[in-house]
Simulated assay, not measured.
Amino acid sequence: MRTIFHVDMDSFFASCEILRRPELKNEPVIIGGKSERGVVSTANYKAREFGVKSAMSIVRAKELCPEGVYLPPDMKYYKSLSLKIMNILNGFADKFEPISIDEAYLDVTDKLDNISPMILAAKIKKEIYNQTKLTCSIGIAHNKSIAKIASDFEKPNGVTYVKYDEARDFLKDMPIRKISGVGKVTEQQLINLGIKLIGDLASKDRQWVIEKLGKSSLRLWLIANALESSDVAPRESSESYSTEKTFDEDIDDKDLIFEYFKKMCRRVSNELKEDKYLAKTISIKIRYDDFETITRAKTLPFHFNDYKTIFDETLFLFDENYDVSRKIRLVGVKCSNLQQSVEKQTKITDFFDL
Rank of each mutant, 00 (worst) to 15 (best):
I4P: 02
I4N: 10
F5K: 05
H6G: 05
H6F: 13
E17F: 04
L19F: 07
K25A: 12
N26K: 12
G32Y: 04
K34Q: 12
S35W: 10
E36V: 12
R48Q: 11
M56S: 01
C65G: 03
D74M: 11
Y77V: 02
L89S: 07
F96E: 04
Y105K: 08
D107S: 10
L112V: 03
K123A: 12
K125I: 06
Q131P: 00
T132G: 05
L134N: 06
S137W: 06
S137V: 06
I138R: 11
S151Y: 09
K155C: 04
K155V: 07
D165Q: 13
D165I: 08
D169F: 13
R177E: 15
K178V: 06
K178I: 05
K178M: 13
I179D: 12
K184G: 00
K196V: 05
G199M: 03
D200T: 04
A202I: 00
S216R: 14
S217I: 03
L220E: 07
L222A: 12
A226P: 00
S237E: 03
S238R: 14
E239H: 11
T243F: 07
D252I: 03
R267F: 15
S269M: 06
E274I: 06
L278G: 01
A279I: 02
T281W: 12
I282S: 08
S283V: 01
I286R: 06
I286D: 02
Y288H: 09
I294S: 08
F311P: 00
T314P: 03
L315I: 14
F316L: 12
L317P: 03
F318M: 07
Y322A: 01
S325L: 06
R326I: 01
G332T: 07
G332M: 09
C335I: 02
S341D: 14
V342R: 13
D350W: 10
D350N: 15
L354D: 05
